[in-house]
Amino acid sequence: MRSNQLSGRRKGYDVLMRSLMILCSGLTAALVLFLLVYVLSKGLPNVTWEMLSTSPSYLTKRVGLLPDILNTIYIVLATLVMVLPLGVGAAIYLTEYASNKKLVAVIEYAAETLSGIPSIIYGLVGMLIFSNNIGTSLMAGAMTLVIMNLPTIMRSTQESLKTVPQSYREGAFGLGAGKWRVVRTVVLPGCVDGVITGCILTVGRILGESAALLFTAGFAHALNGVWEGLWSPGATLTVALYVYAKDQGEFEVAFAAAAILMLLTLLINLSAALVQKHFAKRRSL
């Protein structure tokens, strides 16, 4: 009934906007689907066990991705080990200790700024600060990534600290616990979910990072153990993809790497969603 009373112009507006919205959403969905199907169908057939388990060799014209996969794992671990204490500590300072509002605003603005800086600038500054001092190495890359991911860990920890009820802290204080004890026994266990979410996001960002690593960690494909690997240059999967595609024209390997990265991205997104769901459920109980 009601729609019959609408003037033609209003009806036209309604139909136009509705179809535009559906069209644009459809376009977005189609884009995601296309990227997923295209990369996986082009890349997965090229992924072989030999590729995953060997290092490249010019003699046998073999292109192995194993060193790049290992480098990615090393750099993820090194970054997390360094960024976690820093980020969680900063978040604890902001929510538990800081009393000066201006200082909090300055710190938060700085974190905001860090998350807006493009990775190529991180790469450049990381090269100046770290690579020029300790040499182009996975460690220099990891240190660069630490600065880059500090805001991510900070923010997600802060979010979950805010959900720890104030009464818990007051209860602990009332029982005579000191500040540090309250932080250690009440606050820290409460922010586990934020830390886990932050870790997943960070791993995702490191997997996708290339510009910040190109000049800090280099692009070698040597097969190394953890400790040796950290102090020598090495390409992660993304950097390897770039080098294979852009400089060497080895598109089959590049697509294989892209497919692996796509699957890892899917995995990361899924686990982030699951973790969030899990903790949301537990919190509502």
């Binding site: 997923l36 990369v39 996708g208 290339s210 993809l241 590049a254 892209a258 990361i268 997104n269």
Partner: peptide, 18 residues
Amino acid sequence: EGAVSLLAGIPSVVYGLV
């Protein structure tokens, strides 16, 4: 929203390659 998050997570070199 899951699809959009995936779009955000795809590494930029993969976009470059495609």
